[in-house]
Write a protein that binds this DNA or RNA. Sequence first.
DNA 1: GCGACAG
DNA 2: ATCTTGTCGC
Length: 246
Amino acid sequence: RCTAVSFRPPALGALGLWGGVEQDRLRAAVVPEDTERWQREPGWAGLQRVGGVDLSYGGGNDGSACVSLVVLGYPGLQVLYEDCRMVAVNAPYVAGFLAFREVPFMVEAVERLQREQPELRPQVLLVDGNGLLHQRGFGVACHLGVLTDLPCVGVAKNLLHVDGLVKDELHKEQIRSLQKKGDTFPLMGTSGAVLGMALRGCNNSSKPLYVSVGHRICLETAVHLVKSCCKYRIPEPIRQVEKQGS
DNA sequence: GCGACAG
DNA sequence: ATCTTGTCGC
């Protein structure tokens, strides 16, 4: 069995080696707690813009993809900004190293927005994928958060098997226990640490979201934020950005 | 030994 | 992620 530290992607020695080292190095910069003023204000009165970033792939064979960035007003969730452009992806997708494939382009998109329309800079970003819920505790949401210094939340649509977390019968039973929107259960690894939270984002779908801390936000705030962004199963910033990509 | 494991 | 039709239900 692979342990978190000794895990290496097969047939990708280079990425697994220096990629893992790079993640371990950057991980020290993650701030897994609330650091923003709005996070402390009642009703998040100071929160006005929530962003979403995503990459979508067309053909599937070539390395062409589309990076999309959207900014929604909060709490109205109306679209304030949307950007989408083609890029050439080079790194392959390997579970545990998604950031090396997608984050560079996300950073570009965020920097372009901050340069061209700084007044629309998102106060927090919802990212497809995980944050601390990761083989080395440094998923895409942490990676993007550290590189942009923006609060980030990881929102995965599927469970990443790590630290003993698996989609077994017990897990499915826990999912069945999520009866209504907002219901959650902690994702505790073998190590005893709570790596994230399974969240039922809406009443119509029983399939949960896997929320984890990316950067500059605590898990509880992250879960409440994601819940408040859900009109359907997929939180609006991510739903809009995926729509933008296709 | 094979397969599994975000997008 | 993406390939893909219809179908069941509110």
